[in-house]
């Protein structure tokens, strides 16, 4: 250990040992930083730059794909709209056809029912006429029996009356 003193080997305090020590200091500092610190720093900066670049590219790609998907969706919606219009039009046509068919069937059915009713009415009318004719024949026979005073042969009478009524009709 030495008593401290001011370095005055050369003017302005320059000393070869100290100059060498400062050169060595800088060399050591540079070596450690260049070996351990700066490569790690560059690596991280490069990784981050790559990540950001990748992110930007992904974003651009996503944007393009989104636009494409939007375009596809628009196409699908447009096709669906056209299809729905077609379906509505087809449904209208089919409905009209079914309506016409139902209407035709209903008319046919109504005509059939009307025909059946007319036939039944004619039949009932014929039945009523027959019944009326029989009653009339019976009444005529009874009246004739009373007028003639004798009883005619029943079968002959009926034949005659019915013949009469047929001719009257």
């Amino acid at each position: 250990m030495l008593v401290p003193h001011v370095v005055a080997d050369l003017p302005l305090g320059i000393n070869p040992w100290l100059l060498g020590a400062q050169l060595l200091n800088f060399g050591i500092l540079y070596f450690i930083l260049a070996k351990f610190a700066f490569p790690a720093l560059y690596k991280t900066l490069d990784q981050r730059a790559a990540t950001i670049r990748q992110g930007v590219e992904n974003s651009e790609r996503a944007k393009t794909e989104l636009a494409k998907a939007q375009q596809q969706a628009d196409g699908i919606i447009q096709a669906a709209q056209q299809r729905s219009q077609q379906i509505i039009a087809d449904a209208g046509t089919a409905g009209e056809r079914v309506r016409a068919q139902i209407e035709a069937e209903a008319k046919a059915r109504a005509a059939e029912i009307a025909e059946q009713n007319r036939r039944r009415m004619a039949q009932e009318e014929a039945q009523a006429q027959n019944a009326l004719r029989q009653q009339t024949a019976d009444l005529a026979i009874q009246a004739a029996s009373v007028v003639v005073g004798r009883s005619l042969d029943n079968s002959d009478q009926r034949r005659l009356v019915e013949q009469f009524l047929t001719e009257v009709r």
């Binding site: 003193h5 370095v7 302005l12 400062q22």
Partner: peptide, 22 residues
């Protein structure tokens, strides 16, 4: 003092107050 102060020496090598700062 323009020059640094030697605090102690290691052989011929002076350890100065500016060296400690560096």
């Amino acid at each position: 003092d323009v020059g640094p102060t030697t605090l102690f020496t290691i052989g011929p090598f002076p350890v100065t107050n500016t060296l400690i700062n560096s």
